[in-house]
Amino acid sequence: MRVALFITCFNDTLFPDTGRAVVRLLERLGHEVEFPLDQTCCGQMHFNTGYQVEAIPLARRFVRTFAGYDAIVSPSGSCAAMVRDYYGRLGEIAVEEQGDTALAEQVAQVAPRVFELSELLVGQLGVEDVGAYYPHRVTYHPTCHSLRLLKVGEAPLKLLRAVRGIDLVELPEAEECCGFGGTFAIKNADTSMAMLSDKLRHVLDTRAEVCTAGDNSCLMHIGGALSRQRSGVRTVHLAEILAATEDDARV
């Protein structure tokens, strides 16, 4: 299977370790990973903030860059959902605004082949035990877009349960949004903080040392506050837990 990594601009720039973990994990499972260097940003922030027309060129770039792969994997639920669930709408806008029907056709080809990491592993590759070892107390936050747009369901938890050495604890009110919401955290900073406070309380209640999720954007939001509070809890992307093995010196 020709798997292309859609790293997302956010992970590329801020969380390169997550991308490296995805590569290491998939190669360990015997898959060849390609990284098309022409990729930049999927346009989610533009689209969700109301700059949909501005997102159209980014969508065109995406479908051109990723055409021809069997599967496109992303360590971000919300960016994967942007392509799979909302590129169709961008295709419509391209028709309405610019009379361009090509984008819609290309989206129909490419978008269904985009998967969030846990979806690819459990749903497409059929693995749950990826041979990981991670001797820590961990709680999992299901991000809204992986939960309600992609509907990844139990896939991340199945993967985590199979990790050796892990002490996986349930997060209370797990399905409630952490309050990130992209530009929401900036435009509605007060409400975002009120939501984040509750999420932090639930994370701390679990006495976990690591909070994980399938999206570094939510994790940056949660982790930024855990760091500010010197709480002794850190955030780690799901891919990095799944990539860890007993040979790793890393803690």
Partner: peptide, 30 residues
């Protein structure tokens, strides 16, 4: 832990902002 005024200052009211790493993913890949 603190960003000067403007759009992003709301972020650091409650959260630290992760510093950019030394190397991007694509630099590592290349």
């Amino acid at each position: 832990s603190h960003l000067p005024g403007g759009l992003m200052s709301g972020w650091t009211a409650m959260r630290d902002l992760k510093a950019l790493p030394q190397r991007t993913f694509r630099e590592w890949w290349v």
